[in-house]
Amino acid sequence: MRLILVRHPTPQVTSSTCYGCSDVAVAPQEITTVRASLQATLPTGVPLYASPLRRCADLAAALAQDLPASALHFDARLAEMDFGAWEMQPWHAIARADIDAWAADLAHYRPGGGENVLAMATRVNAFLGDLLREKHETAVIICHAGTIRLLSALQARLPLEETALLAAHSAHKIAYGATVVVDF
Rank of each mutant, 00 (worst) to 15 (best):
Q12A: 15
R96A: 14
P9N: 03
L38R: 00
S22P: 09
R35M: 03
E115Y: 04
L118W: 04
D105S: 04
V182F: 00
T122Y: 03
T122V: 09
P47Q: 11
V182M: 02
I99T: 12
L106E: 07
R2N: 13
L59P: 03
Y176H: 15
P90E: 09
R2D: 13
F83D: 01
P28K: 08
T147Y: 00
G112E: 01
T10K: 13
Y19M: 08
L150P: 00
A36M: 09
V181F: 02
A178E: 14
F83C: 09
Q39H: 13
L118E: 03
A61D: 11
L59V: 07
L48R: 05
Q155K: 07
M1D: 06
A40S: 15
Q12N: 14
F184Q: 07
C21N: 13
A103T: 13
A178K: 04
V13K: 04
R35D: 08
D66N: 10
R96Y: 02
N116V: 11
L53I: 03
V13I: 14
S16M: 08
T33I: 10
A62R: 09
F184A: 11
R96Q: 15
L151I: 08
P90T: 03
E80F: 04
A107C: 15
Q65T: 15
R96F: 06
A121Y: 01
M81P: 00
T32Q: 14
G114P: 01
P52H: 10
D82N: 15
S152T: 01
A76F: 02
L151M: 06
D75C: 10
L166F: 06
N116W: 09
H73E: 14
L158G: 06
W91L: 14
A121I: 03
A76Y: 07
T41P: 00
P111I: 05
M120S: 06
F83K: 02
A139E: 06
A60T: 02
P68S: 14
G112N: 04
A156H: 13
V34C: 01
L128A: 09
A178I: 04
G146R: 07
D82E: 04
L38H: 00
A145L: 00
N125T: 11
T122P: 05
P159G: 10
L131D: 00
R55T: 06
G113D: 07
A167V: 04
E134N: 12
P68L: 12
Y19P: 01
S37F: 00
L78C: 12
V46L: 04
C143E: 02
Y109T: 12
D23P: 06
P28L: 07
G129H: 15
P90K: 10
Q89H: 12
A103Y: 12
A71E: 13
R157K: 15
F74W: 04
A126P: 03
Y109W: 13
L72C: 03
G177K: 00
V181Q: 12
K173D: 15
P28V: 10
A104W: 06
L72S: 01
P43A: 07
T14I: 00
D58R: 12
T10D: 08
A64W: 07
A60C: 10
T33P: 00
L42N: 07
E137S: 12
G146P: 05
E30W: 01
I142C: 07
A95Q: 11
A175D: 14
L42I: 10
G129W: 08
I142Y: 01
A36D: 13
V46N: 02
L151K: 03
H169F: 05
I94Y: 01
A104E: 05
I148L: 03
R35W: 06
S15K: 13
A36I: 08
